[in-house]
Design a protein around this nucleic acid. Structure first.
Length: 554
RNA sequence: GGCCCGUUGGUGAAACGGUUAACACACAUGCCUUUCACGCAUGCAUUUAUGGGUUCAAAUCCCGUACGGGUCACCA
């Protein structure tokens, strides 16, 4: 019985003429140096920070070179499948503004000429190549049961030998075609294994774009390529898909690095040109003084939705991702403030080979800087968008006072040194709520600093309202009146004066304006007081002070 | 256990055989300031996990050790 007959026996309904696919999915017509990358997740629900990081780099590398970035769904493990898993992935990607050139657009729709982009729909393709391999004598059926495999594993462990299906442990490799035929006709179940031509004693060198040259023993494992459900394993699907989809750069997590000998062998046995590989180190997290991989289960910040909930602007997250992706980015960005992420050329050589710690502080800092350079209207939009999803009450208020809110956001903004106090949209409410009567009315708690005495506070406010408060004042006059008020009450007009001779005064202007600030807003930290008063308007300022004095008199 | 990879300050990290071991975040102190924030100034690794070796010269090259990570499925 020939290999051809064997192949027909094993896969009777498959056409093994693989040249059909080679022609159907030709070499891409792209400019010189164009990079084709892909994001290839399993549809298990949502995207992990590490995957987002990878997809971000994949897209960047493709864009920089006028190449192609596509989304392929790796759903060959039907046990792990999750309802609407693809939708979840696409949503997360959309939230981060990572758009694809090709691939899956929803659970069922896709675009691009190299599809299908869902592996479960490519069964025929994989089987054609498997059949081809069988004909070539490079693959064979294996009838070993899971129990048998487990048994040899234990034997190998006992003998302190390498574990796996190889060499003399690869029983089914030695079956003759006639023996196979008999087993098949007896209805024995089987899977298909690749017949590895390698030897463990040979050393091979593989170049990785981020890790450099890595030396491995050559693969000699007869790995499974077609499972009993007729779907391929990851390794085989990777070889077929990335070849047929003409991927030039495979960018993935470095948990794959040890499979590299299998992959390069598969590509060469199949007669394919291997893609370039870039293995990314995992993003780490520190816990109890130890580094560990950021975990989807334990770390909320591992879920990509976390940033959406926090209201960290997407460009800020991208900026942060780029600082850990390319170590020279931060300095470049610092020197090229007016340019954007798109102007920066991603470089594989500048990817750190070791896992970087996820630094939330730094992310917030980048976000804070980013927000400080936004226009007031953009801050308004961003906050509103966030609130609509996570805080309806606040959203309603923002919409009701749209103009007012925009003016509020404009305080100390759009100047050479803008205020930097909003690190994310979800925190904004806690910093400005007192400017909205709807929220201010429930205040019970005032955060006074230096002057605590009730009578003194009331006295200051009373005098201010009756003598020094003039709503129409410009900022300079307003502040001068504050100084006069201070003087009248026995406080220093200038902080310097006070510091030079603290015993001569009860305090200084700063203390006085603190009282005015807190009585008006309840908070000791606010944007510029003059601006706030101006925004609130005479009526509300007076009303708030009067109400405060009344409440403070009991 | 086998096989791979990694280890520079609190963090991200630069430096690819010759620098006072950059820069950014964080932290601390001071200045400025009506608060906070901003900004400015200063401080923060006598030394690159560790022990050897090569060299006139090592964070950089080689070997060992320790620690951390990954992987060894009909999961990806």
């Amino acid at each position: 019985m020939t290999n051809k007959e064997l192949a027909d026996l094993l896969l009777p309904n498959v056409d093994s003429d693989v040249s059909y696919y080679e022609e159907k999915y030709p070499e891409r017509d792209l400019p010189e140096g164009a990079v084709v990358t892909r994001f290839a997740p399993s549809p298990t629900g949502f995207v992990h920070m590490g995957s987002l990081f990878a997809s971000f780099i994949e897209k960047k590398a493709a864009n920089d070179s006028n190449g192609v970035f596509y989304l392929r769904i790796e759903d060959t493990d039907q046990k792990r499948e999750v309802e609407n898993g693809v939708t979840g992935i696409i949503n997360d990607l959309n939230n981060f503004d990572i758009t694809i050139d090709e691939g899956m657009l929803s659970e069922t729709e896709e675009k691009g000429a190299y599809g299908p982009y869902t592996q479960s729909k490519r069964r025929d393709i994989y089987q054609a190549y498997v059949k081809h391999l069988i004909e070539e004598g490079l693959a064979y059926p294996c009838f070993c049961s899971p129990e048998e495999i487990e048994e040899t594993r234990q034997i190998q462990e006992k003998r302190k030998q390498r574990i796996g299906y190889y060499g003399r442990y690869a029983k089914c490799r030695r079956l003759t075609n006639e023996e196979i035929k008999e087993k098949v006709s007896n209805g024995e179940p089987y899977i298909i294994r690749f017949k590895s031509p390698g030897s463990f004693d040979n050393k091979i060198k593989v170049h990785d774009l981020v890790k450099g040259d890595i030396e491995f023993p050559e693969n000699d494992l007869d790995i499974v390529i077609l499972k009993s459900d007729g779907l391929p394993t990851y390794h085989f699907a990777h070889a077929i898909d990335d070849h047929l989809m003409r991927t030039t750069h495979v960018i993935r997590g470095d948990e794959w690095i040890s499979s590299l000998p299998i992959h390069v062998q598969l590509f060469s046995s199949l007669g394919f040109k291997a893609p370039k590989y870039a293995h990314l180190s995992p993003i780490m997290k520190e816990e109890d003084g130890k580094k560990r991989k950021l975990s989807k289960r334990k770390d909320p910040e591992a879920a990509v939705s976390f940033y959406h909930e926090k209201g960290i602007p997407v460009p800020a997250v991208k900026l942060y991702l780029m600082t850990i992706a390319n170590t020279n980015f931060e300095q470049w960005y610092d020197a090229n403030k007016e340019k954007g992420l798109d102007d920066f050329k991603f470089d594989f050589k500048k990817v750190s080979g070791s896992g970087s710690l996820f630094d939330v502080d730094k992310l917030y800092n980048i976000s804070k800087n980013y927000i400080s350079y936004l226009k007031a209207s953009e801050v308004y939009e961003g906050t509103l968008k966030w609130a609509k999803e996570y805080d309806e009450e606040f959203a309603t208020i923002l919409e009701r006072h749209a103009d007012y809110a925009a003016k509020l956001f404009n305080i100390e903004r759009e100047q050479k040194k803008p205020r930097k106090d909003y690190s994310c949209f979800s925190m904004i409410k806690s910093q400005i709520w007192y400017m909205f009567d709807e929220l201010y009315q429930n205040v019970t708690d005032y955060d006074f600093k230096t002057i605590q005495d009730k009578d003194e506070i009331n006295h200051i406010l009373d005098l201010y309202l009756n003598k020094y408060y003039h709503a129409e004042d410009d900022k300079e006059t307003w502040f001068n009146r504050l100084k006069d008020l201070s003087e009248e009450l026995g406080y220093a007009k200038e902080v310097k004066q006070y510091k030079e001779n603290p015993d001569a005064y009860k305090g200084h202007v700063g203390d006085i304006s603190m009282v005015l600030r807190v009585a008006l807003t309840s908070r000791s930290m606010t944007p510029d007081l003059y601006e706030l008063m101006h925004l609130l308007g005479e009526e509300r300022v007076k009303e708030r002070y009067l109400t405060f004095i009344k409440g403070n008199s009991d």
